[in-house]
Every structure is written in C-alpha cells, then in structure tokens.
Design a protein around this nucleic acid. Structure first.
Lengths: 240, 240
DNA sequence: CGTAGTTTTGAGAGGCGTCAAGGAGCGTGG
DNA sequence: CCACGCTCCTTGACGCCTCTCAAAACTACG
C-alpha cells in the first residue's frame, strides 16, 4: 500500500477532539470522512509547501511539528508560527490561490490533506462545519494579533516567557506534561519567531536558569516555576 | 429617518469594487442586498466594538478610518491594524463569539453591518460569496504575517518606510494620490503599530525629511522619493 | 486667548545586536 | 568503539539603536 496516500477517517482518528472534526455529530463526521481521505508524510527538514506553490488544500497536522515562515526580498526571514498535532496549516494560500509562506517540518511528520474545494462544498451542506472552518481562521487571526502584541511591546524575557507558557499549554492540551517539554526548534528559530537573535534567546534561557525558574538541557526544558513565568508576562502590580 | 439604521444596498454602493461584493454577479448582489441593510455611524474616538463585546456581525468600513488594538493585563496596548474604506472589521470575534480587540474610529466614520449568521447562511447558498469570505479572512492572515515580519526583523527606518508605502498604496487603490496623504493617526498610534515609541517615530520622520525622501507637515505627508522608501524596505544588493 | 493634546528635539542610559571564540551533542565512517 | 566533522548552543566584550526622561514648540479647540 502506498504510504503517500493512506486511506484515513476522521471518525476513527484519535485527534478528532483537537482537530477539524470537533463538535460534529456522527452523520456529519461521516460526510467529512469522504473529504479527508489521504495523508502525506513530510520528512524532517523538508517543506510541506513553499512560497508560490499553488494552493489546493489545507493540512491538518497528524503527527510531527512544523514551522511556517515568510521571507523578505533581501533574505531575512521570519518564523510566523509553530504548528503541532491537530493544528491546521495552509490558510495563507486561500486569498491568492498560492501560498505566501513556507511550511517546514521540524521533525518527521504526517499531515491529513483537506482539499479546499471539497471543504467548501461540504461547508455549504452543513453549517456546523462551515462555522467551524470560520472559527479556525478566526483563531489564526487572533493568535497573530497576540504575536504582534508580543513583538511590538514586550522585552526579551517577556517574549520568551510567553513563548514557553504558550508551548506547554498547547502540549498539555494534547496530554503532555504541564511542566516539561522538548523544544522541536533551534534557538535561531525561536529567535526568529520572537524577533530576537539566537544569542539573546540563549542568554535569556540562561538567565531563567540562574533565577531558578526553569531547567534547561539542550532541547529539554523543565518549568519549575510557572507562576514566575506568568508574572514576567503579566506584571501584576503595574496596572494604570 | 433614524440615522442609525439607514437602508442601504451593496448593489448601488460606489465601494462595491473594493468591498465585500467584488466579483458577484447581479443576482448574487441582489441577495447580498437583503443581508446588508443597516449602517451605523461611529464618532471619532469612540468604539465600534470593544474587547469582550458579543460578536454578531462583521463591519465594512463605508467611510472614515479605524484602528484595532489589543491590550495586555498591565495596560500596554498594541495597535494591530488600521482599516480604511472598503475594508472588513470584526473577524477576530468569530472564534469565541466575543471580540478580542477594540475597534476605534480615528475620524467620524460609517460602517455597514454584515450580520454574520446571515452571511454564513447566504454563503451556503452560493459559493462565490462563500469563497470571497474565505479570501477576506485569508487576506487578513497574510497581512498579519507581513506585520510580524516587520515587527520581528526590521529596524525603525524600514518599519516606517514600509508603513508609509503600504498606506499610500491602499489609498491609491481608492483613488487618492500616490504621493500625498493625511495621516489619520497620532505618532503614538503609528509607534504602537510599528513597535516603536512615539519619539522614535518622530525622529525617523525627521530623518526622512532631512534626506529629502518626504515632506512632513503635521499629519500631512508628501512622498517625494517612493523608490527611496522602497530601497529602505528591500535593500537590493544585500542578498544572501 | 488660554489650555490640552500632539509633536519635536535633546541628552543620557540600557537592552539587545554584532562579532568572536569555545564547547557540547550527534551522526558518520573508519 | 572511537575519531572526526558538523550543527547547535553558550558566553564574553563591545557598540549602537532605541527607549527614557525632560523641556519646549506647535496646533486645535473651546
């Protein structure tokens, strides 16, 4: 059987509570199964799609970890997000029928293809799915606004604290620890996402370690003082 | 007649080439007219919606100028965008049924209400509108990614140059000059959007004036050297 | 014409970037 | 099993860009 086109079904997927099908009833789920039929493997370091690729479908991360990034004419690039299990990729491509960012797998990954024309067609048939698609796009917009806030008005420590808290929170929602995580990206990629240089990321990690807030061993991070990180992001007593 | 609920029609609106109805045929436009029936005036300085307000509809800017901004717990806020004629506001509210940012009119404004349930209903009836709604949301996502790039990897001069170019380009698409504009926002609001302090914004304006790239008189800006600004954003010969 | 809001400009400080060197982890091949 | 090289990470020294604080000028508006 061709590994590139495994037959799959949302209805029997253990991610259905996280992914596209949340909130659908069995009959709706059944219809969705007809739309989502193929998976695709992406090797670590290779692209799910690149800037300029024709947009045909959204992708749901089945396993693995992705980054999306945009690039300037002069070669600087900016990581715009990290996507994990159950999250949806590719919405940037709808507006112009072509992708406007690269999506790179940070570890061997598998995605479910959601052909967009079929998704639209099914959305016209039942409003639950339609509204759900709208919510997913809206969530992305709200998330982006949060990143803009981070980039526009936080300092290095606050950015990294917010980043770590966001990561563990998402991992926790997937059944992982609230206090331990393995970073799937390099310091440079973290820095690109947070608008700082990799040296500053490294120094800030070291500072957190000195303060006893976290433990770090390479990609492994143990958050010893969640409240401490939260205080960094939202200083409680400077409210005016 | 109540000024708060003017009967309106997309089909006879002079913004139909910029706004929601682009690409619809006459019969589709006719259906859209049944959904979009009311306008609302918003005075300069007051809010179209605030964080936490219940989300019921999108808004199309009919006239005037808005900013949207998010706020941290400790009172810092970040302008996430400026919206002008023909642009759509409110998509942040879909995901949680409540708005996650404030939308403030920077000058007396008028918006058309697009009740979202009716918009979804009509979207299910014809795919042109459905796809168009998706495109509008996707465009917002792509725009946000651009802002993230700007905030994450550009210096003050590049940010302001990119900002001015973006503004005139959008104004030009609305029939205004390619080289002259009136800023509707304060230096502080520009700074908040671009992730810099108002003093830095002012200094950077002054620098551009000294270099002869622009003329500035308060809110009035005349771009004398568009190519010069473009060179600032995309340095041509530093490619690797 | 006075007052509040906005903008400009200056001086000084500090956070983060830049440049550079060294170290740790990991896969590959002998 | 160890050596080697590669990538990634850490740490230091220094400099610059931007922030902070402050004062003054300008505009708008009542």
């Amino acid at each position: 059987m061709d590994i590139q086109s495994i037959k799959v079904a949302c209805s029997s997927c253990n991610l259905r509570e996280l992914c596209l099908p949340v909130g659908l009833n069995p009959s709706e789920m059944d219809k969705l199964d007809h739309v989502i039929s193929t998976r695709k493997r992406v090797k670590r370091g290779s692209a799910l799609f690149n800037v300029g690729d024709r947009f045909t479908s959204l992708y749901a991360v089945r396993s693995g970890f992705f980054k999306t990034c945009v690039t300037t004419a002069d070669g600087r690039d900016q990581v715009t997000g990290f996507q994990m299990t159950g999250e949806i990729l590719g919405m940037d491509g709808i507006v112009s029928d072509h992708h406007s960012c690269d999506a790179i797998a940070l570890e061997d990954a598998e995605v479910c293809l959601l052909p967009f024309d079929k998704l639209e067609q099914l959305s016209r048939e039942f409003s639950t799915l339609q509204h759900h698609v709208h919510k997913i796009m809206s969530r992305e917009i709200v998330r982006d606004h949060g990143v803009m806030l981070l980039l526009g008005s936080m300092r290095a420590e606050e950015r990294l604290a917010a980043f770590l808290l966001n990561l563990v929170q998402r991992l926790h929602a997937r059944g992982f620890s609230q206090s331990e995580l393995i970073l799937r990206m390099t310091r440079e990629e973290i820095g690109s996402y947070l608008g700082m240089k990799l040296e500053t990321v490294s120094r800030t990690f070291s500072k957190f370690v000195e303060e006893g807030t976290i433990e770090v061993k390479q990609r492994y991070v143990h958050i010893k003082d969640t409240a401490g990180l939260e205080r960094m992001v939202n200083p409680p007593q400077c409210r005016n």
